[in-house]
Structure formats: C-alpha cells, structure tokens
Design a protein around this nucleic acid. Sequence first.
DNA 1: CTGAAAGCGCTTACAG
DNA 2: CTGAAAGCGCTTACAG
Lengths: 340, 340
Amino acid sequence: MRKLTIIDIAREAQVSIKTVSRVLNHETGVGAATRARVQAIVDAHNFKPNAAARSLPGSRSYLVGLLVFSDEIHYYYSALQTGVLRAARRHGYHMIMESCRDMETEDRQSVLRRLGSSRFDALVVPPPMCDSPFILDIIEELGIPYVRIAPRVALERSSFIYMNDTEAAEQVMAHLWELGHRQIMYVGFQETGASIDRYDGYTRFFREKGCVPPYPLITVSNATAKGAIETGETLLRQADRPTAIFAGSDLVAFGLMTAAAKFGLSIPADLSIVGFDDSPGAESVWPPLTTIRQPITDMGERAVDILVKGLGGDLAVRTKEAHRLEFSLIVRGTTAPPAH
Amino acid sequence: MRKLTIIDIAREAQVSIKTVSRVLNHETGVGAATRARVQAIVDAHNFKPNAAARSLPGSRSYLVGLLVFSDEIHYYYSALQTGVLRAARRHGYHMIMESCRDMETEDRQSVLRRLGSSRFDALVVPPPMCDSPFILDIIEELGIPYVRIAPRVALERSSFIYMNDTEAAEQVMAHLWELGHRQIMYVGFQETGASIDRYDGYTRFFREKGCVPPYPLITVSNATAKGAIETGETLLRQADRPTAIFAGSDLVAFGLMTAAAKFGLSIPADLSIVGFDDSPGAESVWPPLTTIRQPITDMGERAVDILVKGLGGDLAVRTKEAHRLEFSLIVRGTTAPPAH
DNA sequence: CTGAAAGCGCTTACAG
DNA sequence: CTGAAAGCGCTTACAG
C-alpha cells in the first residue's frame, strides 16, 4: 500500500490540499463543517504528514531540542528524554539533543552561535539550565520558544512543568508518622534548591502536628555517596539517633544505608529510611528503597505537548502555562514501625 | 548569512548540482580531479546538505534506528544512545528509537508491520535483541541494513562491534594477582552470555599460571542486588572465604559489598572486589568500585559509522565487518593487597 | 564521466 | 472561508 499524502486526503474530502494543510496545522480560516470532515478522514487513515516535505518549504524543522547538562549519563535526563522522544514522535517531530557543558563559563557569543546553528523549533530546558538567567537570556534573544522543567526562579519567564516537592515531602512524613515514628530526621543535599523545598515539607509537617522538628537541617553532597556515608556514621553514633531518616535524594539514602550497615543497624528494623527520586538503583539495593517517584518522563512529554501546541500558531495558546504533575510514594522495604 | 545549498557549491566548483550530489553521496562516476575540487569546496564551507530535501525525493529517510529493550531506563542504553546520537549528527542523520518490549512474544506479523512502518534507513541492534534469530530474521526480511552491538551468536549474519570480555576478565585477574591475591572467586550472573565469557577469562588466567581455579562458578540474578547479597552472605560465612571477588557486573559487586558490610568486613582491607561495566553507581558507592569500563558510547558511534558508510552505496564497504573496541580497567577503592 | 529535467509532499504568498 | 500557483533543496531516471 502506497503512502498517503495530503492529495489523497484532499480528494477524499473534496477540498484543496491547502485546506487539508490548514486543518493539519490547526490554522484558522476553515469552516467548522469542513474542518470536521477533513479531520475525520485524517483520523480514519491515521494520516501523518511527511515531516521532510513539511520542513523543506516551511520555516519549521520539526525538531524539538532537549538541553542536557554535559554528556554525562544521568537517569534524570534519560527519563526526561524518553518522555520528550515519545511526545515528539506522537506529534510528528524528532528530538535533537544539545549538550550544555560549560555553558556558564563559555562566552556569550559562542553559546549564541552554537544554539543558533541548531535548527530546532523549540527547546525543553531542564535543571540546572532552567534556572540560569544567562542561558534563558540567550534562548530568548534567539527567539526560540521553550518550556522549562521544574524551574525554581523567574517563573514568569516561560511555561513550565513542575511537581510539588513540598507536598511530596509531607507525604513521606505522613507515611513515617503513621508507622509510629516521631524521631524523624531530614538529611538533604547541597546541589540544588529542591532539597530546601523538601525540607520545607518536613518542617511544615511537624508544625501542623503542633511539634517542633526534632533535628536541625543536615545537608551533604549529592555528587557521591561518600558525604552521606560519613554524615551517617556521625549521626548514627549519637545517643538520640533518629528512628527514621528522610533523605533528600536516593543517593543520600544509599549512603545512609551503607553507614547503617557498618554500625550493624538493620534496616528497617532498627532504622527506617525514605529516599526521593525512585532512581534505577532504588529497586536494586537491599532492602529495596521506599521513595518518592517523580514523573520525570511525563514531564518531558507534557513539555513537548505545550511546545507543539504553541508552534501550531494559535495565539491563544501562546500564553504561559504552568503544569503540575503528580508524584507518588513508593513504599518498599526500608520503612517499618520503630522498634518497641 | 544565507544557508548554503548545493547550487552554491555547484556554481563555485563550476559543475552541475548533480555532480555535487554525487560527491556528497560518495557515488561513483566522477572524475578524480572533479571530485577533489568539489570536496574541497564542501569542506571549506563545512557544507551539510539539507536532510529534509534529501529525504523528500529520495528513498532514504536519513534516520538511524536504535532498537531498545522496552522503555526501561538502563545506563547501557543511555550510553549507547549518546554514541549513536553523536555519530548520527556527525553524518547528517537523526536518531529514532524503536522500543522492543515483548518482541519475542509478539506474533511475527505485528513486529513486521511495526518495524516496517518506521522509516529508518538502518538499525543499530544491541543485546539482547542482537542474539534473537526471531528479530534478525524479521530485520533481514525487511531488507534493513543493521549492525549489532556485542552479539554472541550467528556472528556471520552481520557487521558487529564488540569488545573482548575474556581479555578484560584476564586483566582484572592480573590486577588482583599482582596485589597478592590467590584466593580469588568469580561471581557471575544468569541473564546474558557475557558472564560466561568473563568466567572463561577467570579460568584461563589460572590455567596460564599453572593453577586450578580455587572456587567453582557461582551465578546470581543480575536483575536486582538481592540475589548477590544473599549469595554474598553465604560465601562470606565460609571458613575458606576468598580474599578477593571478581563480580561479573557492577550490580553483583554492589550486592556483595552490602553483604560484606553486614558481616563487618571492611573493603578493601578484608576483601577486595572488582566489578564490570563502570555503571553510574560505581563512583558513588563507598568505597568507589574498581571495575572494567566498557566503551559503550564508542560502540554506538562506530556502529553508525559503519552503517552510514554502507548506505553510501559503495559496494566494497557492504562487506561485513567486525570492530573490536578497547576496554579499560578503572582502579578505584575496592581493591588492595590481602590482609597479612 | 557529466548534466538537464522532472518531481518528492508539503508550505508560503497571494488572489478571490 | 477557500483555492491555484510557485517553490523549498535535493534525488531519481534518463540522455549523452
């Protein structure tokens, strides 16, 4: 069977190819009845216009860019990428990745040139680039439409996708509280502001219970587990050590688990631990980690959906939007009621 | 500055656009002098032909497919993808990912239809799909050129990229031997044949030293760390426990490290451990894991290089090739001389 | 070994 | 609200 073209659709709908093109691109200026008839035929055939043919005469490339931080393999970007790829394909776009190593230290001209020479129509900007005024200025100067993932600053600058870290933290606390824990500690990380949002949830939870948080904020490096291990060794030696620790990230949780093992503390019998991220290792460690799953893949998908809708040219949808996605608490093996 | 086209190149070289097209596509039938002159101009401008314009009239899509196993996030595929993406961009191609969840259980017709409807010009086929006759039959039936990554069966069927697992294993053994270890054990995994290749290196090393391997082959599941932890607990309880363990994968190594911690064994003072893969966690655990780094990203790049060369149409390069890439032993903190 | 013509499937710019 | 014409930058099929 030959590949369908808009000529086939046009013939079947008894309209010109231009009208089919209008419907396909959600352009205005087509009668409601005509639009419905064409759309029905498009749907019936599951017709997808040829991307090459679209981009050749047009000004669009049908490429969405995903900004990634250096070439490193990080599950956060992998997950995001899976979502971007999925949505891009759905919309007839391709994904192109642009790596941002050293963008902050590079001079303005070379970054401009580099981003300007890539021919994507729109850009998905995840952390930490989404919070860099330097990067945002350049993107805006180039006039590239963009959507940010989980930004923390200058929220008014663009559409963005986010999840509520504070609320997720409160849910972690509620889980531990219900198990009977009261001596709960939060161990965060230094690298990004997300840790603070989670700490806010921790303190807010205690406040709502009418209590004062029993421990001060502790932060370690989130780059390697070393800091968490060392901190864990100090913490767990204390006489009034917590019965449960809420770790700001899975990596911090892993470090604490290692430290606990060194002290002969059994998890979750002697100490409960909750992570944050549901990273690939969370299921592999022993016991498997109770943690918060972030909807990273969904975030990527939604970002592309917004972008493509905006590129459709319908001015009404160019409004900046903020989409909140839901997290979920994954209860696995590192949480249990406290001993006696 | 306006985007260059082959018309500009043709004018500058005083030839027709058809001749420029021939040079660009490495087609035969251009005089050596003409070819050199055109190529020089192409290089001088760093001219890249417009992919959309190429694929529109032609039969090629300028898309390379990467087959991935389900939608899971796995660093192996992430690394491969980085390489494929990098090489694809270099050659003016885009990358498209095709997920293979349940391919083995699906019926032949639906897989054929699915792969047939994606319009990539060539396919990179990593494990485990590269060893599935079912998948290979379908790809060949569709006439899609493909290169396999680290295949273990039917090597004559296609070009492939590989590394020498056995030799890498021998290098691990040499490292441990030089530190003074003699009671070295190998703990492999069940999932893929790679574990056997590594075990072969283990036994071969002892044979070359004129010894008999001191321990039998042990295998655990590579899906979660649980099996490795339990196995480790059994092994480390033994009176004649090894002074060093060569783990068939990083994940197995992580499990063994957890088990060692439970027994109060200090790594590397009481027990040395070496992994295999250099996965993202290898640097984050404590102590950081000594392991073999596989050139996964490079493998992806090379696969695309071969594919694109083949698509160039030069029959001579359609020969099946096998490219071996080099691994490297990354010595970190889990290996040291044995106690006393 | 080299080139002139037609056309891929769309969008742009314009006309009505 | 709808359509006819031109053309995007290449490749294909053909001619010499």
